[in-house]
């Protein structure tokens, strides 16, 4: 039963992904590897669409992957799966808010969880980077030709603009996504 399996996978993601939308990424890669629902390449496109449409990124990605897996009902079921653990956990925490905040075990747990979450997102980023910057064409001849130089130059430009150039730093990610799409079309990436 695909719907039940879909709900379960996203329930798992919602229960263990700590630190917001991007934290669901390592889980989605895990799902892509284990199932034939969607590919790693599709996931990279999904992130772009999720960033440039309204709504929380984690929800957008769940809806998108649910749709690819099982159409419109799949989109709704994946999203429900993702939010169910959140609702349960938050309703429980809200009932014991003060005790939760001051508990040393809770504090200790999060002390360890945050760097782990950051590391997993870093690893997911590497996977996107390999798909993007390494030419997997088997006919590529030299090492020099294995690297997508166009992409690397665009990445350098984006890094500089989004981190160091004053007015550009404040631009919304949507702007850079459309900018990159235009560059991709013009220079035939």
């Amino acid at each position: 039963m695909i719907y039940l399996k879909l709900f379960w996978e996203f329930f798992n993601t919602g229960l263990f992904a700590v630190g917001g939308g991007m934290a669901t990424l390592p889980f989605l890669y895990d799902i892509a590897d284990r199932t034939a629902w969607f590919s790693r390449q599709q996931l990279a496109d999904m992130i772009a669409v999720s960033e440039s449409t309204p709504g929380p990124i984690g929800i957008n990605m769940a809806t998108y992957s649910g749709y690819l897996t099982a159409g419109i009902p799949g989109a709704a079921i994946a999203t429900l799966g993702l939010i169910t653990p959140s609702i349960i956990v938050i309703l429980l925490i809200a009932a014991f808010l003060n005790a939760f905040n001051d508990n040393k075990f809770v504090k200790g747990g999060f002390y360890g969880l945050r760097p782990a979450s950051c590391a997993m997102i870093t690893a997911a980023g590497f996977v996107v980077a390999i798909v993007t910057f390494v030419n997997n064409n088997i006919h590529a001849l030299s090492k020099f030709e294995r690297i997508e130089w166009h992409a690397l130059i665009l990445a350098a430009v984006l890094l500089i603009f989004t981190n160091f150039v004053k007015p550009a730093k404040k631009f919304h990610p949507v702007f850079w996504i459309f900018f990159s799409a235009a560059v991709g079309v013009i220079f035939k990436f």
């Binding site: 630190g19 991007m22 990424l25 990279a44 496109d45 992130i47 772009a48 960033e51 945050r114 979450s117 950051c118 997102i121 870093t122 997911a124 980023g125 996107v128 980077a129 798909v131 993007t132 910057f133 992409a151 665009l154 990445a155 984006l158 890094l159 989004t162 981190n163 990610p173 850079w176 996504i177 900018f179 990159s180 799409a181 235009a182 560059v183 991709g184 079309v185 220079f187 035939k188 990436f189």
Partner: peptide
Amino acid sequence: AHAFAGIRVCVCVLIFNAVIKLF
């Protein structure tokens, strides 16, 4: 396809920036 190839580069940078903030 070309547009999405360009967008993937941007996604890499966005993830990288998110990691820096979280780090």
